[in-house]
Structures are given as C-alpha cells and as structure tokens.
Simulated scan of single mutants.
Amino acid sequence: MMPRAELLRDVVADLRIAASFVTILPVASSKPAGDGAIARATWALPVAGLLVGLAGALVYKISIRFGLTPNLAALLALATTALITGALHEDGLADTADGLGGGRTRERKLEIMRDSRIGTYGVCALILSFGLRWGALATIADPLAVAFALCAAQTAARAGVPAFMSLVPPARPDGLSASAGAPPGGSIAIAFALGTLALALALGPAKALVGLILLSLAGLMLARLAIRQIGGQTGDVLGAFEQTGEILILLVAASFQMGR
C-alpha cells in the first residue's frame, strides 16, 4: 500500500499537471510530464475546471454588485474563463470546426486543424459557443445560480475527457493527445465521479441526469464524426468536446431556470 505522504505528493502533482494544461496560471508541476503522467493526471481535470468556474462566478457576482446588467456580467464572466484558460478550448473548437467542415480528405482536414489561421467554420463555431453560453448565463441571472451553473459546466465538461481519450484513438502519431497516452481506468472513473457529483450538487439530481445524457450523446456523436473524418481524436477535438459540454450544461441550467 502506498504511504500516505507519497500518495499526497502524487495527488498534488496531478493537480498541478491538470491545472497547467487547463489554465495559463503559473503552476509548476513537481512530476515529469512523460511516462504516462499526463494520462494519469486527467482525473484532476474536473478539479481544474472547478477553479475556472469559480473565477467566472466571482467576476459575475462583482459585476452585478457594481450595477451591471446580467448581459454584461455574463460577458465578463465568459471573458474571465477564456482568459484563465488562454482560450485553449475555444481554439480547439474553432480548429475542429474548420478541419471537419473544410477539408475533403483526412490529410487535408488534419492539415487545416494544425493551421493557426481561423476560417469561416471556426468563426461561426465560436460565435455560437459564446452566444449560447452568454444567453444561458444572462437567462439564469441570479448570481448564486450562475455560480452553480458555471462550476457545474466547467467541471462536468472536463469530466468526460479522460473517457473520450481512452475510447477514441489518436488521429495521428504525434501531437499532444497522442503523446499524453490513454488514461487508466482509475483516472477515468474518478473524473466521471467528480463530474457527476458536481452536476448533482450544483443542479440537482434531475438536471444532473439530463446533463449526463446530453453529454454522453454529444460525446458519442463527436467521436463518431472524428473517427469517420480524421481517424480519431486530437487535442483540438478534445477542446471541441469540452466546449460542447459547457454549452449543454449551461443550456440545461437555463432551461430549468425558465421553467420555475
């Protein structure tokens, strides 16, 4: 059995690795990124997502306190989450939309996804992503409810990433996704449990169930599309998966809010 001190060091190292990939915060990892460390640390992605959600929620509350409307506060909250993550997932969404929508062959699609320039499909995807999330937060309006929704969305959207990485093979032998490797079963299970717990605590059992179903369906659809068009997943596809999850959870929270 692993000593408690060593276990704690491994947990802290995994949290640092996850935070370094999810955010631009200067979080140094005490654990080498090689030898499967990244894959093992994927269980901590939901925890890193929770920090992003809390930052967005804080900015939203402060904005409301200073008299801004929910529309403006929602924009500032989304800008905060994008700033903290370095717009990593938004970039992945745009590249995935450009690649899957623009190329005719597998090679051309992968080439487009590696191109730093953004195309029409990518612009449209970003407009839809920010627009839907902005509208959902503005609809929820109440600062406490927004905080719960943001934390649930940021956490749950990353909870399925380890499973997606494990079930969908890398589309190419190089790149971040391929070098990270397939997460072990324990990391997949912990991440899923953390995401489910966040949804249940923040949105309640009924909303959590709806969110889980939608996330699962979206993941299956994206996986099928990625395998058919480019032969698997890339880091950009993982970013698109995360963005889709955020959108769905916030829409679920907003729709139930309207139904009260």
Score class of each variant (00 low, 15 high):
M1E: 15
R4V: 15
L7K: 12
L8I: 15
A13P: 10
A13Q: 12
A13V: 14
A13C: 14
R16E: 15
A19L: 14
L25M: 13
P26M: 14
A28N: 09
S29K: 06
S29A: 15
K31T: 10
P32H: 13
D35M: 15
G36S: 12
A37T: 07
A37Y: 11
I38R: 08
T42S: 12
W43R: 09
V47R: 02
V47L: 12
A48R: 05
G49R: 07
V52W: 05
V52G: 00
G53M: 05
G53C: 04
A55I: 06
G56E: 10
L58R: 09
V59P: 03
K61I: 10
I62K: 04
I62C: 03
R65P: 04
F66G: 01
G67K: 02
P70W: 04
N71T: 13
N71C: 07
A73I: 07
A74N: 02
L75P: 02
L76N: 01
A77K: 00
L78N: 00
A82K: 00
L83C: 03
L83Q: 03
G86P: 01
A87I: 04
D91I: 01
A97V: 02
A97N: 02
L100P: 01
G101H: 01
G102Y: 09
R104F: 10
R104H: 11
T105K: 02
R106S: 01
E107Y: 05
K109S: 09
L110S: 05
L110N: 02
R114Y: 08
R117T: 13
R117G: 07
R117Y: 08
T120R: 08
G122N: 06
C124F: 14
I127E: 10
F130P: 03
F130S: 00
L132S: 03
R133A: 11
W134F: 13
W134M: 06
A136Y: 01
A138N: 08
I140N: 02
I140K: 01
P143C: 04
V146K: 06
C151M: 15
C151T: 08
A153T: 03
A153R: 05
Q154P: 02
A157L: 08
R158E: 13
G160S: 09
V161P: 02
P162G: 06
F164L: 08
L167Q: 07
P170Q: 11
P170D: 09
R172T: 11
P173M: 13
D174S: 08
D174T: 11
A178S: 15
G181H: 06
A182K: 15
A182C: 15
P184N: 07
G185S: 11
I188Y: 07
A189D: 13
A191M: 10
G195K: 06
T196G: 12
T196F: 13
A200F: 07
A200E: 10
A202D: 03
A202S: 10
A202V: 03
P205H: 09
A206D: 08
L209C: 06
L209Q: 06
V210F: 08
G211M: 07
L212S: 06
I213N: 09
L214S: 07
L215Y: 03
L217Q: 11
L217M: 13
L217K: 09
L217H: 06
A218I: 10
L225W: 11
G232W: 10
G232V: 09
L238P: 04
F241C: 05
F241W: 09
G245P: 00
L251D: 12
A254G: 07
A254Q: 07
S255M: 14
S255V: 11
M258P: 00
R260S: 14
